[in-house]
Computed example of a mutant assay.
Amino acid sequence: MSKKEIISTDNAPAAIGPYSQAVKVGDTVYLSGQIPLIPATMQMVEGGVVEQAKQVFANLSAVAAAAGGSLDDAVKVNISLTDLGDFTQVNEVMASVFKQPFPARACVQVAALPKGSMIEVEVILSL
């Protein structure tokens, strides 16, 4: 049986609850959901959903790098939005982050996210 390796980096926001930034088991890395916190200040990035999405993917990229990979290794992306009206803008940001072939993805609208965030994204990598 594979052992869990906890992944942590100061280049992404510290966990704000009882969870790890990521957990690696074998060649699979499960990245916890990221909201648009600036790692150095733990404050929300200013701006709308585009700025928030860019910060979220920057945070995820930092965690992926700490795990020995990159977002190019993503096989599954789960996106939570507080407004599905932001779907098109988030797609544009995602298209600038990921290369084809794109990972599998789910996107859902939720009632609320931590700290009033408009977006939260979690990713699974296969290294």
Rank of each mutant, 00 (worst) to 15 (best):
S2L: 06
K3L: 14
K3S: 13
S8A: 08
S8G: 01
T9N: 05
D10C: 01
N11M: 07
P13A: 02
A15L: 04
G17L: 04
P18G: 07
Y19D: 00
Q21T: 03
A22W: 01
V23L: 03
K24L: 11
K24Q: 12
G26D: 12
D27I: 13
Y30T: 05
L31F: 02
G33P: 12
P36A: 07
L37W: 00
P39A: 02
P39M: 03
P39T: 02
M42Q: 13
Q43F: 07
M44L: 14
G47N: 09
G48F: 08
V49Q: 06
V50G: 04
V50R: 09
E51Y: 01
A53E: 07
K54S: 09
Q55H: 08
V56M: 07
F57G: 09
N59F: 03
N59I: 02
V63F: 00
A64C: 02
A65I: 01
A66G: 11
A66V: 10
A66H: 06
A66M: 07
S70G: 15
S70K: 02
S70R: 03
L71G: 04
D72M: 05
V77T: 11
N78W: 00
I79K: 01
I79L: 08
S80F: 05
T82P: 14
T82N: 11
T82W: 06
D83L: 07
L84N: 13
G85K: 13
D86M: 13
F87Q: 14
T88H: 11
Q89T: 06
Q89K: 15
Q89A: 14
N91A: 12
N91D: 15
V93D: 10
M94H: 01
M94N: 12
A95L: 15
S96A: 15
F98C: 14
Q100V: 13
Q100G: 10
P101Q: 12
P101I: 14
F102V: 13
P103W: 04
P103M: 08
A104R: 06
R105D: 06
C107T: 14
C107N: 05
C107L: 13
V108W: 02
V108R: 10
Q109S: 11
A111M: 11
A111G: 13
A112L: 11
L113F: 01
P114A: 05
P114D: 03
P114L: 05
G116W: 06
S117A: 15
I119S: 05
I119C: 07
I119Q: 05
E120F: 07
E120V: 06
V121H: 06
E122L: 00
E122Y: 00
V123L: 02
I124H: 01
I124T: 14
I124P: 00
I124Y: 00
L125E: 03
L127R: 15
